[in-house]
Write a protein that binds this DNA or RNA. Structure first.
Lengths: 234, 234
DNA sequence: TCGGCGCATTGATGTGGATCAACCGGAGGT
DNA sequence: ACCTCCGGTTGATCCACATCAATGCGCCGA
């Protein structure tokens, strides 16, 4: 049987920690399932657990006082969520909802905080993680302000192609178009139009199946930032 | 004479650290001045220093490959910047530019990383800080997606009123309207129109001087999130 | 005092995306 | 087979904001 501690070892967040520390984390975590649509953490609530997504998909969204909602991120294995809230001991700013049936690890927030206080390696791992989440948010902010929906879609598609496929690529979307639209910060209708626009740039779609016929052309439209070349980040 | 170590002690980021650790930080920091418009850290570059702003204002902006730029935040004393990049050892995603003449502390990035590795209290302090920056970004993302420019301006104005002023308030804007517009994610022209809209909600302006005559009414329009009441965060 | 310059405001028009509404096509149930 | 439901698409219209252009106004130096 697979125990939680085995699982903890496979979580990238913790993989560099030594076994004794991982065991102590294991002692305060439990594995839990979640049904599709189940709310795992409610905006405005104090998080009881740090969650790690082992299987399935989880959507993070933030809703304004007037009730409108912005989807901020869709998580896949092996991501985690509500880390920043746990660390700041502040109520969450987003609601986490299972998109599909999920399997998760739930690490008790209080216990984790105690460990973080005492263990520099753990604090360091989390520091890296939160910092990179911060950077993700900055990028999203920039994309939202500076790129059109079609460009954001283009970037999203380009991000799914594996390295080495310079000209053509084919894959399927990891979730339905309604969710993709929300993730890209637009409505389903506009995502549809965005796909229509990209058709002129060698993008073919059949349902969730996507074929990119001309990656360079798509890049020219979408202008993705290329992480391997800091100069293009200027 | 005021030494850097005295200054380190006054930086909220470090104030909870014990004296010996602060000294070790002091050993790798220097105080530097900056002229208005001077670029302190360039997008896409590896940050050499963690900066702490002692005097003046610094703008953080992110520019897309096509050259358009989004201002993400305007910093005031005693904020710091490029922390997430230093911690992840990744190139910066934003350019930091002095808005006014500034005085700063520059903490050597490599040295800081060494300290962070070894010192749990330091790692913890930074963890809190990055986490709360992360939360700030989430909020900005939500505001941008969900609120109009007039609402964002309303929230911004309401955020400047000190607690206890429930009905009326008066203050001056900390920087010029061009910068405020960028900070709010709109053009100067639209900021102007936003102010015009708010005039109908008891907002009076004379240059940088702002008078709020009817705070409750403004709140009703802008619907700021009230940090003291988690329920309104729903 | 007068010109000029820069910031702020105001107006006219264009655009991206939201919203509302109708329609299409495949999957499941009967 | 048929109907129904639902995700997706398409079209029409609306709204917030950008953009372009003109004007107003305070400040400063000649």
């Amino acid at each position: 049987m697979v125990t939680a501690v085995d699982l903890i070892g496979t979580v990238p967040l913790f993989e560099r920690l030594d076994a004794s520390l991982r065991e102590r984390i294991e002692a305060i975590t439990e594995e839990i399932p979640a049904e599709a649509d189940q709310v795992l953490s409610h905006q405005g609530a104090m998080p009881q657990f740090l969650y790690i997504l082992l299987e399935g998909q989880v959507a993070l969204s933030s809703t304004a006082p007037d009730g409108t909602t912005a989807l901020v991120e869709v998580l896949h294995p092996i991501d985690h969520f509500v880390l920043a809230s746990v660390l700041t001991r502040l109520p969450t700013l987003m609601t986490a909802r299972a998109v599909t049936r999920c399997r998760l690890l739930a690490i008790h927030a209080g216990g984790l905080l105690d460990l973080v206080e005492a263990e520099a390696p753990l604090a360091n791992t989390l520091l890296r993680s939160v910092s990179s989440e911060f950077r993700t948010m900055v990028r999203q902010l920039r994309d939202l302000k500076l790129r059109t929906a079609a460009q954001r879609l283009g970037c999203y598609l380009l991000a799914r192609v594996k390295d080495g496929e310079a000209l053509k690529a084919e894959f399927r979307l990891p979730f339905d178009k309604g969710l993709l639209a929300a993730r890209l910060g637009c409505r389903q209708e506009n995502l549809s139009r965005a796909f229509a626009t990209l058709r002129g740039y060698g993008v073919e779609t059949h349902g969730a199946r996507v074929i990119l016929h001309d990656i360079p052309r798509l890049k020219a439209l979408a202008v993705p930032d290329d992480p391997s070349d800091p100069e293009t980040l200027l």
